[in-house]
């Protein structure tokens, strides 16, 4: 046995190869941020810089993902210990996300629990017509909760080895996620307040907008998992990427419930 295994490395951990993607992705994200600012503030050629940022970021993401897929599926570097480390990383990342949202909620409650005299001493502020929580926001709540159920269905189907049901469940999740994003876009364009006209709009769009970005990221995350299921890369037991996307999706789901209760419902009355 010694003769066989000494030909392999003697420890289960993955020492990663040098990779260009961290630094290249950093510059792509800088480009994306600068592009977004120049575009939104109406600078000349801002749209071009923003588009370039999107292209470069997508490029780096796809190639980086491809490298990780090669390391995991085709080179077999992801031993039990490596998978454990990846899962701890995802959980710590989600904890950091929880605190990012905590700060946004803090800002919301800071301004809404004891409304200043400048906004009429009331929340919503005088002159603001808030959105009806029991119209589109309630529908969105059902959409997100249903998508959470569908992704659980897909996950259990994958574990049970049912390829078709797994793919169907994940596709339905993505469809509901896209409808959610579309409805949020529709509601943003119909709302009677903007991000720049006062504290209500600022708190509203900072919190729901941050959540909206997370929904988009989660949708991409799940879409990558779908592609990997279709490409036979995920096995019945080894699918950490898919599990991470599910965890992330449930996190986004829970944040929405808090948003719905605090910002849409309580913040409306």
């Amino acid at each position: 046995m010694n003769k066989t295994i000494f030909k392999f490395q003697h420890f289960p951990f993955h020492l990663v190869d040098p990779s260009p993607w961290p630094i290249l992705l950093s510059f792509s994200l800088l480009n994306l941020t600068v592009g977004a600012v120049t575009y939104m503030h109406g600078f000349t050629y801002g749209g071009y810089i923003l588009s370039l940022g999107f292209i470069l970021t997508t490029f780096c993401m796809v190639l980086w993902f491809r490298d990780v897929v090669i390391e995991a599926t085709y080179l077999g570097h992801h031993t039990k210990e490596v998978k454990n480390g990846l899962m701890i990383g995802v959980l710590l990342f989600i904890v950091s996300e929880v605190f990012a949202f905590l700060s946004v909620f803090w800002a919301f409650f800071h301004s809404s629990l004891s409304p200043a005299i400048e906004i009429g001493g009331s929340w919503p502020p005088v002159g603001i017509t808030p959105l009806d929580p029991f119209a589109i926001p309630l529908l969105n709540t059902f959409l997100l909760l249903s998508s959470g159920a569908f992704i659980t269905y897909g996950h259990h189907a994958l574990i049970a080895g049912n390829r078709k049901a797994a793919i169907d469940g994940v596709i339905l999740t993505i469809v509901l996620a896209v409808i959610f994003t579309g409805l949020q876009y529709f509601e943003y364009s119909e709302a009677g307040f903007t991000m720049a006209d006062g504290i209500y709009g600022s708190a509203f769009y900072a919190s729901t907008g941050l959540h909206g970005f997370h929904v988009i990221i989660g949708t991409i995350f799940i879409t990558v998992s779908l592609v990997r299921i279709i490409n036979y890369q995920l096995t019945t037991k080894h699918h950490n990427g898919f599990e991470s996307s599910i965890l992330y999706w449930h996190f986004v789901d829970v944040v929405w419930l808090f948003l719905f209760v605090a910002v849409y419902f309580w913040g409306n009355t």
Partner: peptide, 17 residues
């Protein structure tokens, strides 16, 4: 048309383990 199992598909160190 099936979902692979680890024993069917794992390679490298993962398979060794």
């Amino acid at each position: 048309g099936t979902v692979p199992t680890d024993i069917e598909q794992a390679t490298g160190l993962e398979r060794l383990q």
